[in-house]
Design a protein around this nucleic acid. Structure first.
Lengths: 224, 224
DNA sequence: GGAATGCTTCGATGAGGATCGAACCATGCG
DNA sequence: CGCATGGTTCGATCCTCATCGAAGCATTCC
């Protein structure tokens, strides 16, 4: 019976609609203030504050104080991955959504997942990186090949960073139901896509929209 | 507030301790009956039934009716993956390693699981029965060999009983995370252990405590 | 056909927790 | 300093939902 990690505690934190909305809003990767999150969740400020302290105590959020502003963000990419997994199940079992609007379609193609790219484009990219032997599957992990190191280095992405966070990690995609690339490399690639202005983020959405020329550039570099 | 898939609904399903325990018990892939899940979750049968219907309605479980038995199992590998992700976060976030008390330790060694033996002893026993070719793995099922039939018959355990319930079944052990033996044979072995007074059940607990001589006898018969 | 077993439904009870207004801190501005 | 703004804490209210006993179905055994 009572054994192992307290999974019910974590799940019940996500299980409240107000908190779920907050976490969903934070999946965009940018930290938000309590007021913004209250608005996002549709609750009053005191209520939001109460929820935020619970999420903090549960270890799902981090807090950065800047002056009189307090920015809340997801605690880790692992937490983001868990939320993606829950979203995936919710999508799968809730086929009641008859009309996948244009915004949903855009989300399906490419979107931000915490700090890296997700969606069809991201899944295709990971496939190609495997095909080109720039990344290698090892057990259930992903490893950079030496060819991959020099390849990304040529793109201005340094992969030798010493960090506790893994360089490569697989993250399950809820729309495609296959893995895309997370980890510091996944984050760096998203950074490059935005920095090169290949794509821009939709306002108030996790969707990522490529420009025509940007898409060509992205395909040339990562999908060729 | 944006409208996405109902993630709170899914998460809240997992967020109840009783339901979380049930799902955890089902993580091994073997389907279990409502009674077994009630025991596993530590709730009454009506309560368990209520939870199970909610999990069914939420699309997290599948149901296979066999006669008057109804076996519940996880709906998909995607659901299992989601639970794994939640477990991962819970482990990362809950570094409060609770010292397992003496009763928990006893539970870990040997306990009753519905009507058969579970725990380290039970897992070791199943391993040895495979080693000695008394039981055979077939796909995901377990089958008695002819040597096994005569072996158990010599012990006074008749394995030719005509019953709808399978003679051998694998049951996932939460403490060892590996399978032990359920089914009528598993039940008969537990009966023998109790009848021979090799061990007795703790009061108000699922723990099974062997006597010194009883342990020797058990090891000679099942672990040699 | 009973009788037994496995499971679900019903009804009543109770506890946890989500919510908001108001009051209370803290920081920044003039 | 006073005042405004961003956030948290407190208290009271309300409501959902988990829980179990008892009764009701369904299936199988004898």
């Amino acid at each position: 019976m009572r054994e192992g990690p307290d999974i019910a505690r974590i799940a019940s934190l996500v299980g409240d609609p107000a908190r779920a909305n907050m976490l969903n809003a934070l999946m965009g990767g940018t930290a938000l203030t309590a007021s913004e999150l209250a608005l996002e969740a549709g609750v009053s400020l005191p209520t939001a504050s109460s929820h935020l302290s619970k999420l903090m105590e549960g270890g799902l959020l981090t807090l950065a104080s800047q002056g009189r502003h307090r920015y809340y963000g997801l605690a880790s990419a692992q937490v983001a991955g868990m939320i993606e997994a829950i979203i995936g199940v919710a999508e799968a079992v809730g086929p009641k959504r008859v009309r996948p609007g244009p915004r949903d379609a855009a989300m399906r193609v490419a979107r931000v997942c915490y700090d890296h790219l997700a969606g069809e484009q991201a899944v295709a990219m990971l496939d190609r990186l495997f095909d080109r032997k720039l990344l290698l599957r090892e057990d259930n992990q992903i490893r950079l090949s030496s060819a991959g190191v020099s390849h990304f280095s040529a793109l201005g992405i340094e992969t030798h960073v010493k960090a506790r966070r893994p360089v490569c990690r697989a993250c399950l995609d809820w729309s495609v139901r296959r893995s895309h690339l997370a980890g510091t490399l996944g984050a760096a690639i998203l950074d490059k896509i935005i920095a090169e202005r290949w794509a821009r983020r939709e306002k108030d959405s996790r969707a990522v929209v490529f420009s025509p020329t940007g898409r060509q550039a992205f395909e040339r570099v990562f999908l060729s």
